[in-house]
Write a protein that binds this DNA or RNA. Structure first.
Length: 824
DNA sequence: AGCACGCCGACT
DNA sequence: GTCGGCGTGCTC
């Protein structure tokens, strides 16, 4: 409390009023507003403090704001806060600190970072309305006399009804409404006013308690005659159990009327309280027995010890596909809940991870809240409210769930941590894995990163001691890893076999279908870039300077390196072997489906890709139809490689391992290895052993060899050496600047200017390289043309400072992407 | 981001 | 003379 006296909200001198002010970050999705704004705190909102969400006037609008400071200062030139959004602070100090870290690390405004922590874009629904202008109201007659009747009618309607929204006015005055409003606005007879409504609707319950002390109450209870059975039961219950909710009383056959009657006599008190149910912590069955393998037990013991220590600790759980990582997650979360703390489980994409959700739900029931992007605003609010109130203690969701409003986080689990979906591809471009580390560090929580194919950066960090490495090296039950056959497509061609499906794969599929088994085929879409490859020797045209595949550009029919921007003409013959079989690569989806139908006519084939899965239901339907055995072969893009666990799948095929390998991306090898490993992991999860065929023109490439052997350690040791040599992550850091323009020419010119300025600004930074500008892989998106500039440096702190000095952080046409996942 | 203000071209 | 285009600048 502020002491009344010398500095209190009293006039001091010359128009200075000392009072409470709040520093507020405006919740508007823009990087252009960086600072906090000051508002005076009116008497009735004096409880509002740091972390509260508030309603504020902002220019001509009313918007939501987040209070990040409170102090005493001159309030004379400030607007007052309008209202508080909630009955309690929304942000705790850990959330505020995490947001601050995000804002600094990813170079976004405080508002952009803070709004990640609230459900939906704003807790405030606002609509534009119109009302009379107080200052000119008396002049109404002057500017309305020579106007039609409608004008006056609308004016007097607003005078009578006060602020009215446009839809209501349209209903009343029809098509001319907009014209009339414009005129009145210009004549300064009316003004716009924002109608705001809080979307946050906390749930309340009616709580009945004794208004008198126990002795008095039991005296009344005994004095009541037998015929007042209802009242007697009610009093007895309240004496025995304390305050009870109206719903609970109704369940025990106490009539609402009985309650109200006793309230009138002053014996009872009825209050509305926000619904906060007891934590689920106590109700986890201790009797739950699961058989863990020795390795699982060891991993769990290590995690549990850290959880009990209540200090930050990060683990990398490296477990081969089918080794039972989920079981370890379940047990670790159970331990956290027994301690009364809460858990976040992140999954790459909610639609693809039904199994993990189901297992958590069947183990923890209503203690689990699932959040995903398809929740309606109301559902999302409800989900977050259940978390905030402590009614639920486990959140499962995609990357945004890392911002869930948990009061006491005990563990954050990131399943399939290598997945790129953890990186948000719009501002703020955070990586959920890094946010999780920051948040866990503040909360004294444990992080578990799980994967069969950890990101190279993560594994390196584990070697460096940032994460404790835990390994699961055997499959659960009797399942064994499938055997993988690598088919050399150059050899197929030499034998005159021109089909996109090799003999080996054809044979495997036929056998599988005959045996009544099922097969999954991955057709790696060629993506958005085309590379040029020699079908005779398998060589792909690379940039001599960057060791990156050249990309074919239809416009100008040239090959271009997306790293250095150098362009060359397309050669007629292969520069390596002189063959004429040099071609632009990329196989159509339908073509493969047709060939499959021709080569394996007895198979029932279902296709799953962007075209066939319009909605997430489409996807689930396809998977469940396949699981039910209504199809023999599931043919699809990346998504068939993930998550699902179908016992009858004994064969897996990969049409072209080269597609991922030849992306102009320094992570191409990593992506290829992970894809082969994950895909192979789909096979042989039941008792039957699985077989995998991987088709490639590069059978000797280390990513394909190690992928076929499912040998992460060998893959890693080769890959890390090359990363080290070229200064790519984890040895160097990348930062991507995307320049957007209305035309190709405009984007190009600005990109050149920015590149020049940045090159100059970072010249003094040791080993800092600037690459580009080069056209983005998808140059034109919705009439916006994009150019990329890549910065590579041992550390980015100084680089970021320079970009802020150049004011690149507040420009609408410039995107800064720290640690980009998509380098194209 | 919005929204007001302002300065120019094209029309009732 | 009005209407309405969208460039600039500000929001406590």
């Amino acid at each position: 409390m502020i002491k009344k006296g010398l500095f209190s909200p009293f006039f001091i001198r010359r128009g200075i009023f000392m009072g409470l002010i709040a520093q507020v970050i405006v919740n508007i999705a823009t990087s252009r507003i960086q600072k906090a704004f000051s508002y005076s705190i009116p008497e009735h909102l004096s409880h509002v403090d740091i972390g509260w969400r508030v309603v504020i006037p902002f220019g001509a609008r009313v918007v939501e704001g987040f209070v990040i400071g409170k102090m005493e200062a001159d309030t004379s030139k400030l607007k007052p806060l309008i209202d508080a959004m909630d009955e309690e602070p929304w942000f705790d100090s850990h959330m505020l600190q995490t947001a601050q870290w995000i804002s600094q690390y990813y170079i976004c405004s405080a508002g952009e970072a803070l709004r990640l922590f609230i459900p939906g874009k704003s807790g405030l629904k606002s609509a534009t309305g119109y009302c009379l202008r107080e200052d000119t109201a008396v002049l109404a007659e002057e500017f309305l006399t020579e106007k039609p009747e409608d004008y006056r009618r609308l004016y007097y309607y607003l005078q009578k009804h006060g602020t009215t929204g446009e839809p209501a006015l349209l209903r009343e005055f029809g098509v001319d409404t907009k014209k009339i409003l414009r005129y009145l606005l210009r004549q300064k007879g009316i003004r716009t006013a924002t109608i705001h409504r809080k979307t946050a609707k906390p749930r309340y319950e009616t709580l009945v308690s004794l208004a008198i002390d126990h002795q008095e109450a039991s005296a009344i209870l005994h004095a009541l005659p037998e015929r007042n059975g209802g009242q007697k039961r009610l009093l007895a219950a309240l004496l025995a159990e304390g305050p009870l909710s109206m719903t609970a009383l109704r369940d025990s056959k106490v009539l609402p009327d009985t309650v109200h009657r006793l309230e009138k006599t002053g014996v009872l008190q009825i209050r509305q309280v926000q619904l906060i149910r007891d934590s689920y912590a106590g109700s986890i069955s201790e009797a739950h027995v699961v058989q863990l393998t020795e390795e699982q037990g060891f991993a769990l013991a290590a995690i549990e010890q850290a959880v009990r220590g209540r200090e930050y600790h990060s683990f990398l759980l490296h477990g081969i596909t089918g080794s039972g990582k989920t079981q370890v997650y379940l047990e670790a979360v159970a331990t956290v809940r027994k301690l009364g703390r809460q858990a976040i489980v992140l999954v790459p994409e909610i639609a693809l991870t039904h199994q993990i959700v189901r297992r958590f739900k069947s183990r923890f029931g209503t203690d689990v809240v699932v959040v995903h992007s398809r929740l309606s605003a109301g559902e999302r609010f409800d989900a977050w409210q259940r978390i905030r109130s402590g009614e639920a203690g486990i959140v499962i969701g995609a990357r945004s769930a890392v911002f869930a409003p948990l009061a006491d986080i005990g563990i954050i689990i990131i399943d399939e941590e290598h997945e790129f979906t953890y990186k948000q591809e719009e501002a703020p471009r955070y990586h959920a894995r890094e946010v999780a580390q920051t948040r866990a560090c503040l909360a004294g929580a444990v992080v578990v990163l799980g994967s069969a194919t950890p990101a190279v950066e993560t594994y390196y960090e584990a070697q460096q001691g940032r994460h404790t490495l835990l390994s699961l090296t055997t499959r659960i039950g009797r399942a064994v890893l499938p055997t993988v056959e690598v088919v050399d497509m150059r050899e197929e061609l030499r034998r005159g076999q021109r089909s996109v499906i090799s003999e080996a794969l054809q044979e495997l599929l036929t056998q599988t279908v005959v045996q009544g088994g099922q097969a999954v085929i991955l057709l790696n879409r060629r993506g958005y870039s085309t590379f040029v490859m020699c079908r005779e020797c398998g060589q792909v045209l690379h940039c001599r300077h960057c060791a990156i595949s050249l990309v074919y550009h239809l416009a100008g029919r040239t090959l271009r390196c997306h790293y250095c921007g150098r362009g060359t003409a397309v050669p007629d013959v292969c520069p390596h072997c002189g063959s004429r079989y040099i071609k632009f690569f990329g196989t159509g989806t339908q073509k493969v489906e047709e060939e499959l139908g021709r080569l394996v006519p007895q198979a029932r084939i279902i296709r799953m890709d962007q075209d066939t899965t319009g909605s997430k239901m489409g996807h689930e339907k396809i998977i469940s139809a396949f699981t039910a055995g209504r199809y023999d072969i599931l043919l699809g893009t990346q998504m068939v490689a993930k998550g699902h666990d179908i016992e009858n799948v004994i064969a897996v095929g990969m049409i072209s391992a080269d597609t991922a390998l030849n992306l102009p991306d320094f992570r191409a090898a990593e992506k290829t290895f992970a894809l082969i490993t994950q895909l192979a992991g789909r096979a042989g999860r039941g008792h039957k052993s699985g077989k995998v065929v991987v088709q490639t023109y590069n059978p000797d490439h280390f990513a394909i060899r190690t992928g076929a052997d499912q040998d992460y350690n060998s893959f890693f040791s080769i890959e890390i050496a090359s990363r080290s040599e070229l200064g790519y992550p984890p040895f160097g850091k990348l930062l991507k600047i995307v320049i957007q323009g209305a035309t190709d020419e405009q984007a190009r010119r600005r990109a050149e200017a920015v590149a020049g300025a940045v090159r100059h600004a970072v010249a003094h930074i040791k080993d800092c390289e600037l690459i580009g500008p080069f056209p983005a892989a998808v140059v034109q998106v919705k009439d916006v043309f994009r150019m990329n500039i890549m910065i590579k440096a041992p550390a980015l702190t100084e680089v970021k400072k320079q970009l802020i000095v150049l004011e690149l952080d507040t420009r609408a046409d410039t995107v800064i992407d720290v640690d980009p996942v998509n380098v194209m």
